[in-house]
Amino acid sequence: MNQNTTADIQEHTVDESICSSENLVYTKPQTLTDDPMHYCPGCGHGTAHKILMEVVDELGLQSQTIGIAPVGCSVFAYHYLNVDMQEAAHGRACAVATGVKRMMPDKYVFTYQGDGDLAAIGTAETIHAANRGENFLVVFINNGIYGMTSGQMAPTTLPGMFSTTSPYGRDVETMGYPLKIADLLALLPGVAYVTRQAVHTPANVRKAKKAMKNAFEYQKKKLGLCLVEIVTNCPSNWKMEPLESNQFVNDKMIPFYQLGDIKKPEVK
């Protein structure tokens, strides 16, 4: 797949004396299972899973967190996120999360949804949960395409962007404009926190993780719905190498889906 390999590379021998627990700066979060993830090489789903579980670990909430998995590439999220998980029908994660949170208001509840799941088939469930001000976190993975079903146009597909159902590029005249659903949801009084982040560089990964942590803290205060959008890649269906896809996120996705907080609660 990659041309940047070298056959006769000088491999480094590990200096065991450095590898002690007091020198540890990064290791996989405990709350992520050891199962190898099924995502394509370089896909942002893995990165998003990882930081979500880092937050759960750091806040010590493994036994108090319940996640709702979507339909889409992350349909098997429950194999990797080692917290109580419930699968929902396509698009219905916010409806399921509403039930779970109302029955167990002291648990931390999140949904994890792609853009096809959240912004197409699940639009109604998402908007009404937001409008009711339900107290859970929505992690929204926006890769501008239907990944799992092999790359059809999503509501979030950029103008001119190619997909199997817009083979000449998305023509906004006939196919409509990309939906900035995070901006729409931010208008609703029931929504406490809306932020748009990315995971294509280490600095962005850090910020996205901080945003998820904020959302858990707001959930504790029962401030309303929190939405963390992650603008990310789909190397396979964009037909790009992973690095090239991250460049596309930087050059094309982010100028349209601008990063930053769209709505933030006033916390006393």
Partner: peptide, 28 residues
């Protein structure tokens, strides 16, 4: 991915960007 000879300073950028969470970093 492998580590080659070089002046790794343990910044953890590699581990943070890794979607598979398979890199462990130590810094002394």
């Amino acid at each position: 991915a492998i580590r080659i000879e070089g002046d790794c300073n343990g910044c953890a950028a590699c581990a943070i960007i890794c979607p598979e969470a398979i890199i462990t970093v130590y810094r002394k």
